[in-house]
C-alpha cells in the first residue's frame, strides 16, 4: 500500500478533528449566545455548583463529566472550545433523587467546560473547569 503524507496526517493525528471535521472553534459570541439563551443575561454566582472533569483527558471523544447543584431546576453543560458550545441540559423532575448527573462528552482540544445551574427562584450559578486533551501517539 502506498502511504501518502496526507493520509498519514489524516489517520494518525486528527484526533481532535475526528468527530468535528475541521477543528474550527465556537466563537466567543456563540458561547455567550448559548449562555444568554439559558440565563437571559442574569448574573451568575459561583457557590453551590460542582463540576467534576478530568484535568487531562486521554482522548477528546469520550470525556467523563459530572455536575451537581443541590436544589437546581436545570443544569446546562457547555464546551467553550467546541464548534458548537452546547453539550446538553439536564432538567430535573419532581422525582430527581438529587440534582446531580454524569455523562461522557466530546471535546475538540484543550478548553474550558462550563456548567450553569438555574435555580427555582430564577437565579443562576456557574462553574468552569479547564480540560487538557491528549493527542494520541499511536494511530490505527
Amino acid at each position: 500500500m502506498t502511504q501518502t503524507r496526507r493520509q498519514f496526517v489524516g489517520t494518525g493525528l486528527a484526533v481532535a478533528a475526528a468527530f468535528f471535521g475541521l477543528p474550527h472553534i465556537a466563537s466567543a459570541a456563540q458561547l455567550e449566545e448559548a449562555i444568554a439563551a439559558f440565563t437571559g443575561g442574569a448574573d451568575m454566582g459561583g457557590e453551590g455548583i460542582t463540576l467534576i472533569a478530568p484535568e487531562i483527558a486521554e482522548n477528546g471523544n469520550t470525556v467523563p463529566i459530572e455536575v451537581s447543584a443541590p436544589g437546581a431546576a436545570a443544569i446546562m453543560l457547555l464546551a467553550a472550545g467546541n464548534p458548537q458550545a452546547d453539550v446538553c441540559t439536564f432538567n430535573f423532575g419532581p422525582l430527581a433523587g438529587s440534582q446531580m448527573a454524569s455523562t461522557r462528552i466530546r471535546l475538540a482540544g484543550e478548553q474550558e467546560v462550563v456548567a450553569i445551574a438555574r435555580m427555582p427562584d430564577g437565579t443562576f450559578k456557574q462553574a468552569r473547569q479547564n480540560v487538557r486533551v491528549t493527542i494520541g501517539g499511536c494511530g490505527g
Partner: peptide, 26 residues
C-alpha cells in the same frame, strides 16, 4: 474499546496503526 474510535478494535487493526505511525507500510 478505544475511546478514539468509540468502537472496539482488533489486534491487527492496532498493529497496522502502529506501523503506519512510523510511516512504514503495514
Amino acid at each position: 474499546y478505544r475511546l478514539k474510535n468509540a468502537n472496539i478494535v482488533s489486534v491487527h487493526n492496532r498493529f497496522r496503526g502502529c506501523i503506519r505511525d512510523t510511516r512504514g507500510e503495514p
